Amino acid sequence: MQDNKNWNELKEFKGGYYGLKIMLFIYNYGGRYIFSFVLIVVMFFYYLIAKKQRQYSREFLDAVNSTREKRGLKKLKLSTFAHFMSFGNMLIEKLRSWQGKLILGKDIVFKGDSEQAITKYNDNGRLLICSHFGDIEALRAIFTINSTYKINSIFYTDNAKNYNRFLKTISPNSNINIITTTSMGPDTAVMLKEKIDDRQIVAIAADRIPTTYNSNQNNRTCCVEFLGRKAKFPQGPFILASILKCPVVLVFGLKNPHTEIIDIVCIDFGEKLILDRKDKEVSLQNHIQRYAKKLEDLVIEYPYQWFNFFDFFKE
Rank of each mutant, 00 (worst) to 15 (best):
D197M: 14
N164E: 10
N164K: 12
K314I: 14
Q305H: 08
I176R: 03
R71F: 07
N146C: 09
G30R: 05
L240I: 07
R96Y: 00
R220I: 11
V41M: 14
Y304R: 09
G253C: 02
M90S: 14
A206P: 00
E271K: 13
I136W: 11
K14H: 12
E271W: 07
V224M: 04
I204N: 04
F13K: 06
L250Q: 03
K272G: 06
A241T: 08
Y156P: 00
Y156R: 00
R96A: 12
K294G: 02
Q289L: 06
G270W: 06
K75S: 11
K77C: 12
A231K: 01
F313H: 08
Y29S: 14
L78G: 04
V64E: 02
N146Y: 10
T144I: 15
D135F: 02
L39Y: 01
D62G: 10
T182Y: 04
L298E: 03
F307A: 10
S36L: 10
S183N: 15
K106A: 11
E12N: 09
Y302A: 05
E271Y: 13
S183F: 08
I262P: 00
T148M: 14
K230M: 10
T188S: 08
P303R: 05
T157G: 10
L78D: 06
C223L: 11
N218M: 08
K75E: 13
I274M: 12
M184V: 15
G88V: 06
S86R: 03
K168Y: 08
F45D: 11
